[in-house]
Amino acid sequence: MSDVTPHTRLRAPSSPPMGAREPARPRDCSRAVWLRLAEINRKIEDSWIGDLIGAICLLVIIFGSFWILPMIYEVFK
């Protein structure tokens, strides 16, 4: 009983001391970020914003090909 202080009696033996938490492992952080990005992607794809982004990308590809294909044709001519 002489080596037991009032502080050790109050704290549970299995609890870590204050401020001694381990930092999250990189795999846990990257998984959390990936899940968050997947959730955002799902929300965008299910809304009109996803349709708008798709339409803009399609227009850029179509009109961009009209601009770049003649240049490629001249290079390989």
Results as ranks from 00 to 15, higher is better:
73 Y>M: 12
19 G>L: 03
48 W>N: 07
29 C>K: 05
44 I>W: 01
26 P>G: 01
30 S>Q: 05
41 N>S: 10
34 W>S: 03
10 L>A: 04
51 D>A: 14
27 R>L: 06
32 A>F: 07
7 H>E: 05
35 L>K: 06
72 I>W: 11
52 L>T: 10
54 G>P: 08
10 L>E: 09
39 E>Y: 02
20 A>E: 06
26 P>T: 02
59 L>H: 14
58 L>V: 11
1 M>H: 02
34 W>P: 00
16 P>D: 06
55 A>S: 12
57 C>R: 15
32 A>E: 07
26 P>R: 07
43 K>A: 15
56 I>K: 13
70 P>D: 12
42 R>I: 00
75 V>P: 00
77 K>T: 11
22 E>I: 10
51 D>P: 01
23 P>D: 09
56 I>S: 13
38 A>N: 05
32 A>D: 14
62 I>D: 14
34 W>H: 04
76 F>M: 11
47 S>I: 01
14 S>R: 03
62 I>A: 14
24 A>Y: 02
60 V>A: 05
26 P>I: 04
5 T>G: 04
39 E>D: 15
58 L>A: 14
70 P>R: 01
67 W>N: 06
39 E>H: 04
30 S>P: 00
7 H>A: 05
2 S>K: 10
41 N>P: 01
7 H>M: 05
19 G>F: 00
22 E>P: 02
72 I>A: 08
50 G>P: 09
21 R>P: 00
65 S>E: 14
10 L>I: 02
74 E>L: 04
58 L>C: 13
41 N>D: 12
67 W>S: 09
1 M>I: 08
51 D>S: 15
13 P>T: 03
59 L>R: 08
26 P>S: 06
54 G>H: 12
19 G>P: 01
75 V>C: 10
34 W>Q: 11
13 P>S: 01
28 D>S: 13
44 I>P: 01
57 C>D: 13
20 A>F: 03
28 D>G: 02
47 S>R: 01
13 P>I: 07
67 W>R: 14
65 S>W: 08
9 R>G: 01
54 G>A: 14
45 E>R: 12
69 L>F: 09
48 W>S: 10
35 L>V: 07
54 G>M: 10
75 V>Y: 12
66 F>Q: 15
64 G>C: 03
40 I>R: 10
57 C>Y: 11
75 V>W: 03
7 H>C: 12
71 M>A: 04
75 V>E: 13
26 P>Q: 12
10 L>W: 06
5 T>M: 12
58 L>Q: 15
42 R>T: 15
30 S>T: 06
35 L>F: 06
33 V>Q: 02
41 N>K: 15
14 S>P: 00
76 F>Y: 07
77 K>W: 15
47 S>G: 04
4 V>K: 05
59 L>N: 10
18 M>Y: 05
1 M>G: 04
19 G>A: 01
60 V>M: 13
